[in-house]
């Protein structure tokens, strides 16, 4: 396996951002109400991630270390604005379903996390493959969560009836609590079959080593300062 394919494998399976690294929980919980929303959100995030990784990788020797975070945030925010305008212009249905969540891609930990952990240390080609792997991993996880919630909550999948009409769907899965329940279910299954996740980061941080790479990094600086 060459190093480009290794990046894809890494993002899809080994370090799947949602299932293994437990990053980007907010969009996962919020937009997984239906399978199609999961696909749209995953692909929008992937588009932003590919371009942000590419730009940050190209500029990695030019951005001074001290101001790298603000620089990354400006790059990501510009890309998100472009994505938002494109979606508004060409995909009004997606805009209607996800409108509020598109701007929040800026603060998605996956994007700043990959910039900090990968793109600013590697060449553009590898950075793009990393973004595609992570983006696909995120999309697949979101689609899985969305499909499960749609089947259980509405009895449909991508808008088509899959459960027989006689089975009445469990409405709670389409409502906010369903998001927490479905993600809990995924982690229980992964625990039961023995796949290691980094859920410790998710639930056992003391505020300073939260699960977001960007936050954690600022906290490192603070700890050094305190010494």
């Amino acid at each position: 396996m060459n190093k480009y394919m290794e990046r894809l494998y890494n993002g899809l399976i080994k370090e799947n951002p949602t299932m293994v690294l437990m990053l980007g929980m907010c969009p996962t919980l919020a937009v997984s109400t239906a399978a199609i929303n999961g696909v749209s959100m995953g692909l929008s995030t992937m588009a932003v991630l590919i371009f942000s990784n590419l730009i940050i990788s190209i500029l990695r020797k030019r951005i001074p270390n001290e101001v790298r975070l603000p620089a990354y945030i400006v790059i990501v925010a510009s890309l998100v604005t472009v994505t938002q305008l494109i979606i508004k212009a060409y995909l009004p249905a997606v805009d209607k379903a996800l409108g509020q969540f598109i701007p929040l891609i800026v603060v998605n930990c996956i994007i700043l996390g990959r910039a900090e952990a990968y793109a600013n240390k590697h060449e553009p080609g590898l950075a793009i493959m990393d973004a595609i792997g992570m983006g696909l991993g995120f999309t697949i996880a979101l689609t899985l969560a969305g499909s499960l919630r749609e089947i259980l909550g509405k009895g449909t999948l991508f808008g088509m009836q899959v459960l027989p009409e006689s089975v009445s769907p469990v409405a709670i899965f389409s409502l906010p609590p369903g998001a927490y329940l479905v993600i809990a279910l995924f982690i229980i299954i992964m625990n039961a079959i023995g796949i290691k996740t980094r859920q410790r980061q998710l639930v056992e941080s003391d505020g300073c080593n939260g699960n977001c790479a960007a936050c954690a990094m600022q906290c490192d600086e603070r700890k050094e300062e305190a010494k």
Binding site: G178, Y180, L181, A184, R200, E204
Partner: peptide, 22 residues
């Protein structure tokens, strides 16, 4: 039970709180 320890039980608690808030 072992598989529920850690994140799952926290998420389930959050789900129950969310149901109450509905």
């Amino acid at each position: 039970p072992a598989p529920l320890r850690g994140a799952p039980i926290v998420l389930i608690s959050a789900a129950l709180m969310s149901i109450a808030f509905i």
